[in-house]
């Protein structure tokens, strides 16, 4: 197998690694870089669990080769929360809304929502509820019946609500 050297940034830290040409980005992130928060639910592009942010865009890392990310800036679910443990808005909203059960699909859902709503990634205006739900239709969650995920999406599409504190 041919090996290739790639240099890239993951969660703000620089990495340099020799990878086989056939290694997927997901396997590289999990096995080489140690970001096991990248989950593999199908390895064929349907479930969305493996979603990470590559150069500002949500990408299914099971469908991308590691060699394609040479020079890229990647964020995984491990890279969102603050160092002191404060959750990212997307993460906090999902917790508040009971948007997860087993948590296996969760990293992908978090990354898709973060890519669309976090100003440091998105290039356009904050998405509408429909846009966000449209993006989430590419994620499979077997546990929750999507109720909390949808509530979280609604909140994130209307960010005023998020910062208005407790809206009982």
């Amino acid at each position: 197998m041919s090996k290739h050297t790639i240099e890239l940034t993951i969660n703000g830290r620089r990495h340099s690694s020799d990878v086989e040409a056939r290694t997927s980005l997901a396997d590289f992130l999990r096995d080489d870089a140690g970001y096991t928060g990248v989950h593999l639910g199908c390895e064929h592009g349907v479930c969305g669990a493996c979603t990470v942010i590559v150069d500002g865009k949500a990408v299914r890392s099971c469908l991308m080769l590691a060699v394609q990310t040479h020079g890229s800036d990647i964020t995984t679910v491990e890279g969102l929360a603050a160092d002191d443990g404060t959750l990212h808005t997307v993460q906090q909203t999902l917790q508040d809304e009971h948007g997860l059960q087993c948590g296996f699909c969760t990293p992908g859902i978090v990354m898709t929502m973060a890519a669309l709503t976090d100003e440091s990634y998105r290039s356009q205006a904050n998405p509408t509820e429909e846009q966000l739900l449209g993006a989430l239709s590419g994620h499979i969650c077997r546990c929750t019946g999507y109720q909390g995920i949808r509530r979280a999406a609604k909140k994130l599409a209307n960010p005023v609500e998020i910062y208005s504190g407790d809206e009982s």
Partner: peptide
């Protein structure tokens, strides 16, 4: 849920 912070941050 107590489980959520680790699951939401990829540390499950």
């Amino acid at each position: 849920r107590k489980e959520d912070p680790r699951l939401l941050t990829g540390r499950g």
